[in-house]
């Protein structure tokens, strides 16, 4: 849409930095890619530097690393159970990647990887495919009983089965939309109020206060949305494994 430099949405624009073409695929290195690499590298750095000493009595940094490990480990165990252990590395990578993308985006002048619907949808699609495959492998065709809730009269099946199928297919959409909407809305608001501060000059103190509050809220959302994405992944995995 708008390509003006000061549009609140201009921060979401993707610019090609190094054009790369592999066959018919456009694999250009963009500013989005910069921050994806940054997020992945930060996660790896955070973990490997924190665990460098491997101390029996952890220092502050190592405690933080262990805390994040146990946080996700508990999340998986509480929501998926013992069988969830196999998926722990995936869930952990997912949580850390989204969390670091969100957290890096809190720094001014950065690009918000997770504010792009294609990115959040890609994550949601991976989760969706994984969950469906896990369910199919574990239960075979019995997996489709997920679409017919127990204790429902058979006469209602023609109505309920499509509804359940739509609900199931809507999972990745709502998953992607939630993360995308939260981050886009938050960063757009920050930008809008930032524009007010610049426009109003001295009187810009009021919107500045709003920005401070919003910024705190954004920090919370950065964590919360990574958490929600992760816990929903766990819940879907649990559904597929145990077919409630």
């Amino acid at each position: 849409m708008s390509t003006e430099a000061h549009s609140p949405l201009s921060q979401f624009e993707v610019h090609t930095l190094v054009p790369i073409q592999i066959g018919s695929v456009d694999a250009s290195f963009t500013n989005a890619a910069v921050f994806m690499v940054a997020a992945a590298a930060s996660v790896l750095l955070f973990l490997s530097l924190g665990m460098a000493k491997r101390a029996m009595v952890p220092g502050r940094w190592q405690s933080l690393v262990e805390l994040s490990y146990e946080f996700i480990a508990n999340l998986v165990r509480d929501n998926v159970g013992k069988e969830g252990r196999r998926f722990f590395p995936f869930v952990f990578a997912l949580f850390m990647f989204i969390l670091f993308c969100n957290a890096i985006a809190l720094v001014p002048y950065t690009f918000t990887v997770t504010s792009h619907i294609i990115v959040t949808f890609a994550f949601a699609a991976v989760v969706f495919v994984l969950v469906t495959l896990v369910g199919l492998f574990k239960h075979g065709l019995h997996f489709f009983s997920l679409f017919l809730p127990k204790g429902v009269p058979i006469a209602l099946a023609p109505l309920l089965v499509p509804i359940e199928i739509i609900s199931y297919l809507a999972r990745p959409v709502s998953l992607a939309l939630r993360l995308f909407a939260n981050l886009t809305a938050g960063h757009t608001m920050l930008k809008v109020f930032g524009g007010f501060v610049v426009m109003l000059g001295l009187a810009g103190v009021a919107p500045l206060l709003v920005i401070v509050v919003l910024y705190g809220l954004e920090t919370l959302i950065a964590f919360l949305q990574a958490y929600v994405f992760t816990i929903l992944t766990c819940i879907y995995l649990n559904d597929a494994l145990h077919l409630h």
Partner: peptide, 15 residues
């Protein structure tokens, strides 16, 4: 509010 709205909208959109 956001959660329920997103839930509604995405399900409707998929339908």
């Amino acid at each position: 509010a956001i959660r329920l709205a997103i839930e509604m909208v995405s399900t409707l959109a998929v339908g």
